[in-house]
């Protein structure tokens, strides 16, 4: 069997091997250079980030300890009672979770309206004036580059504590993020219906209503649902800066070492986020399916 394997003539084989070796060597040199640059960057970052290996080893055992202390004591014999004790404040927490969802909902909705109003001015195929496009794009970029929690910090000073600054902060960030995605959708439409509508004498608004909207609405809805999902996570931490929702209670529980409360609230948040993810995923698949059928 082995005898059937062809052997190259020695000269040719040497040549092929040499080519292979030099190719591998070149690749290794490039890899080594990349690794060296990375190592220097890590070294610098280690100094800037005050990384102390000894501190890490001294403290690393505290992480599992912490996880153990936040784990509730549940026994099979008294499961109902233990669960009731773990979630002793369930009624208030559910109310706060509801508020968190409402904050995410309103933030997404208001942001959607803003993005909808601006996306046509930011897309190259519908807005011929360059300066309008540039101004609206820069505005959208600013709205999405500043993290929402920074807006929330500012708004808490201006509007006072409570869910309102949280909603507005999420709305502004959503406006920036959705506006960009909407504009990209609008730029990818088929322009023929728009030309058709314009040819029959349609105004800009009716051209958008009858030629653009039918093409983009399902994508808009899908992006908005995705953003709602993201905003639920964002709304959960708005309370850290005093902008409403369940975050305030969670922060207190963590800071004051109410261990079982920490895990109870985290379980509630994770469950909510997972349910929302599942529901919006189903809705988005339904929407995109409808679009493909159409």
């Amino acid at each position: 069997m082995n005898g059937a394997v062809l052997h190259l003539p020695p000269a040719q084989r040497e040549h092929a091997l040499a080519a292979y070796r030099s190719a591998v060597a070149a690749k290794r040199v490039r890899l080594a250079m990349g690794l060296a640059i990375l190592a220097v960057a890590i070294g610098l970052a280690g100094i800037a980030g005050e990384i102390d290996a000894r501190k890490l080893f001294d403290n690393i055992h505290r992480l599992p300890n912490y996880l153990v202390s936040i784990t509730p004591q549940l026994s099979w014999a008294n499961l109902g009672g233990d669960l009731a004790e773990w979630f002793w404040n369930l009624k208030d927490w559910l109310k706060l979770l509801g508020d968190t969802l409402l904050i995410a909902y309103l933030g997404t909705l208001l942001g959607f309206f803003g993005a909808f109003a601006l996306c046509f001015a930011a897309s190259a195929n519908l807005e011929k004036r360059r300066w309008v496009r540039i101004v609206s794009r820069r505005f959208l970029e600013f709205c999405r580059s500043v993290p929402e929690i920074v807006f929330a910090l500012l708004f808490v000073v201006a509007f006072g504590l409570g869910p309102m600054p949280g909603v507005l902060a999420l709305a502004i960030h959503t406006l920036g993020a959705l506006g960009k995605q909407f504009a990209e959708v609008v730029e990818n439409i088929d322009m023929k219906p728009v030309e058709g509508a314009t040819a029959t004498g349609a105004s800009r608004v009716s051209a958008i209503r009858y030629a653009v909207l039918p093409q983009v609405m399902s994508n808009f809805a899908s992006y908005t649902l995705l953003r709602f999902e993201i905003n639920v996570r964002g709304a959960a931490v708005m309370g850290f800066v005093g902008a409403g929702g369940i975050g305030q209670d969670l922060m207190e529980a963590i800071r004051k070492f109410y261990y079982s409360d920490v895990s109870a609230i985290l379980v509630l948040i994770i469950a909510t986020v997972m349910i929302i993810d599942l529901v919006t995923e189903q809705l988005r698949h339904a929407l995109l399916g409808r679009e493909q059928r159409a």
Binding site: Y66, I149, R233, R255, L266, I270, M274
Partner: peptide
């Protein structure tokens, strides 16, 4: 992934103290 990075930060402050670590 269900837990936001800010929540992890709060938890790790309890574990290793305030600071970049």
């Amino acid at each position: 992934r269900g837990v936001d990075v800010l929540i992890w930060a709060l938890i790790f402050i309890n574990v290793v103290g305030l600071g970049p670590f």
